[in-house]
């Protein structure tokens, strides 16, 4: 039996990927099983899904603790989740990243394969939906499932044009992966990360929480795009700030010297005809992105009346 764990973010299609793997394996004549970690996560939050493949009927119903393969759909998960937890000594980790295997931040002893699935998906599908691309990569890297079956399962799930572009993306990733050499496995076993995220704080009598404690969750990891502010043009209308669902834009009031400098700069801009007089009066107000929490929804950019905010692809 082979066990696969998929780490992704809500909305990236991790569960679909696990299911498609299971369907493809079934097409290959195997028994298979796919299931999510049943959670309440919304788009962007870390999620986990599992697939088992076997020649025999699968009776096991527990989660997967010692995977043969791990698929990481979003490179930011490497620092947020212990993605290699329990990985078999000769296991393979496939990470969606434009970086090289050495640079994604996983232990050197682990067989890591990277693939720029986001790049491929944007190029071929036109949207940063990477699950099908990664399935192609999985077939190429592991040989556990035939690319034909992967394609078949994708087409069955997404008929028509959408399915076709997804298949193309999967095929491209398959070719790229199949061409990469399997790294000779070093015997050093992956160092177990400390269960740092596990909290041993004593629980109260009932599930009563303290105010604002959600702030420990850094939802900035969720984003694919980030907003870039052009403060020179900014009219200080405050629309970006007031429309951010995540309170990820900070409104700061500059005082003293800082405020004077900001005013001076604004006056120059006004002379140059770049901003209006009204904006000069509010020059001491600054709007700054709080990258810790910005989920990259793009509302601020959409609402900025002067198009002073641009959404840029986050490097991962």
């Amino acid at each position: 039996m082979k066990e696969i764990r998929i780490h992704g973010r809500g909305g990236q299609g991790s569960v679909t990927a696990a299911e498609l793997l299971a369907v493809a394996a079934f097409e290959d004549g195997k028994y298979s099983q796919a299931f999510p970690f049943f959670g309440v996560e919304r788009r962007g939050a870390p999620v986990t899904a599992f697939t088992r493949l076997s020649d025999k009927k699968i009776r096991l119903r527990s989660q997967i603790y010692e995977p043969d393969y791990v698929i990481v759909q979003d490179a930011t998960l490497v620092s947020a989740v212990d993605v290699t937890a329990g990985l078999k000594p000769d296991g393979i980790v496939i990470v969606n990243s434009e970086k090289s295997a050495e640079d994604v931040g996983l232990n050197a002893g682990i067989d890591v394969r990277t693939i720029d699935a986001t790049g491929i998906a944007l190029e071929i599908i036109g949207r940063p939906i990477v699950n099908t691309t990664l399935l192609g990569a999985f077939a190429g890297a592991t040989g556990e499932i035939s690319i034909e079956s992967i394609k078949q399962s994708v087409l069955a799930r997404f008929p028509g044009k959408i399915g076709e572009v997804n298949v193309q993306a999967a095929e491209k990733a398959y070719q790229l992966m199949a061409a990469t050499e399997r790294k000779p496995h070093k015997k050093t076993r992956a160092r177990k990360k400390e269960a740092a995220r596990e909290s041993y704080e004593k629980i109260p009598t009932a599930a009563i929480g303290k105010p604002g404690t959600s702030e420990v969750t850094e939802t900035g990891d969720w984003r694919i795009f980030y907003p870039e502010f052009d403060m020179e043009q900014c009219t200080r209308c405050g629309k970006c700030f007031e429309n951010c669902p995540d309170a990820a834009i900070i409104e700061r009031t500059l005082r003293g010297k800082e405020a004077d400098e900001a005013r001076k700069r604004a006056e120059e801009l006004e002379k140059a005809g770049k901003i209006k007089k009204a904006a000069v009066k509010k020059a001491h107000i600054q709007y700054e992105l709080d990258p810790t929490y910005c989920k990259g929804c793009g509302i601020c950019a959409n609402e900025c009346p002067i198009q002073g905010i641009k959404m840029k692809l986050e490097e991962k």
Binding site: R42, S214, E215, W222, D246, K295
Partner: peptide
Amino acid sequence: ASGHRACA
């Protein structure tokens, strides 16, 4: 507070 888990 920030850090809530609503969809983007």
